[in-house]
């Protein structure tokens, strides 16, 4: 069991922002969808460090990212 980051895209899309995507230690993991104006997480690649939470919550006070327990994939 481990945690991965999840972006609340409705909240994220309220801002003009891609800051967290610039600070994830992993490449090709915390992505930005220009059309939807929101960041999103490729959960298979996320290592659960919560650095993105620090950026979104502590630095920017936007609280769009939460760490959530990985649930088994449905068939």
């Amino acid at each position: 069991m481990y945690y991965v980051a999840k972006v609340n895209s409705d909240m994220c899309a309220e801002y003009k922002c891609n800051t967290c995507t610039l600070y994830c230690p992993e490449a090709n993991t915390l992505m930005f969808d220009k059309k939807g104006n929101t960041s999103w997480v490729d959960e298979d690649r996320c290592k659960g460090c919560a650095l993105c939470v620090y950026v979104c919550t502590d630095m920017l006070d936007r609280n769009c990212i939460t760490m959530e327990m990985v649930s088994g994939k449905e068939d």
Binding site: N18, T21, L22, Y23, C24, P25, E26, A27, N28, L30, M31, F32, K34, S39, R45, K47, G48, C49, A50, L51
Partner: peptide, 27 residues
């Protein structure tokens, strides 16, 4: 660097630790 997360980056998956700032700088 200004639009990381919007193109396919050169670094692929790797085994460095979660939250490693060295991995970040390499990115």
């Amino acid at each position: 660097p200004g639009n990381m997360g919007q193109f396919k980056e050169l670094v692929e998956e790797h085994p460095m630790c979660s939250g490693c700032w060295m991995a970040y700088y390499i990115r």
